[in-house]
Amino acid sequence: MRRPTLRPALLGLAAFAALACVPAVLPGFMVFQASIALTYAIAILGLNLLMGFNGQVSLAQGVFFAIGGYVVAILMVDYAVPVWLALAAAVAGNAILGALVGIPALRLQGLQLAILTLVLAALVPPLVMRFDKITKGTSGISIDKPEPPAWLPLDQDSFVYFLCLAGAGLCVLVMSQLIHGETGRMLRAVRDNPVIAESFGVHVARTRIATFATSAAFGGFAGGLFALVNAFVSPDSFQLFKSFEFLAGAIIGGITSMTGAFIGAVIVVFLPEWSSHISLAMAGLIYGGTLVVMMLVAREGVAGLIGKTLSRAGAASLSMASQTKPHPKPETRTMVLAEKE
């Protein structure tokens, strides 16, 4: 397996620079939406790790997103905790929670886990209502957006956008550390053939739980940032639909592609928005139709589609989609661990 070369790193840097120009180019409300899309991208990155590199279908990312949001809101508003500490608490808390969910998940096959996590995700709004002493129930919690430091010539929305961008950048770095090299090979081995991975000395259970924890931590971080961007959390923001959006975004973008996570996030944030300009009720119809059609024509997501087109044109593949097909054939999967560097 090839070590990550300089080229993806450069491409990533270029994309990062392009994204940094967004507040200067786009109007205010689009900056807000772009920030939301960045938080979605972070949650989807976490989901990619879990689904694309560990083969577990989870609809619980919305749960961790919600918990992250509420942890940040409650800590900042009720306990006057500084932003960075509140975000760190959201990450740490969700990592622990993710590990706790990950332990029973070891025993569940794909479908069972999907159902259990779906019901868990549906349970979020009622739980928020039930513990309304802490969560303030339907009235929700308003948060003061973090103020930019005096030496930065930025308005508040742009500052929050850059906060999200920095967060997303951090997550991409963490993610690329995880999916390349030794750890990545371990993850893929566990996904493709746990028995053989075990016999090569990989601790399958521990790897799975750790992946679940990391994925949940991404979700919690994203939720915390979302609370800052939105400056408000309420049960309405964390309906079952949120988990649907994350899953859809992950698959639409391309389940093993980091670029895909961002593409997917942009699609699930902006597609309903744009189509609601046509007609409010048509928005759902277009959205749902797009999901169905996407699965018919481009099952490996937009990143997979671009990758395929590029490689057909003889150019280098855009992402690591070429290295990591979502579900390789059994004959090819077993040799992952035995390959030489």
Binding site: I251, Y287, V292
Partner: peptide, 12 residues
């Protein structure tokens, strides 16, 4: 995801 699409589509 396809089922989620159908879900959203029919509800809409």
């Amino acid at each position: 995801v396809s089922c989620i699409g159908l879900f959203i589509g029919f509800q809409a």
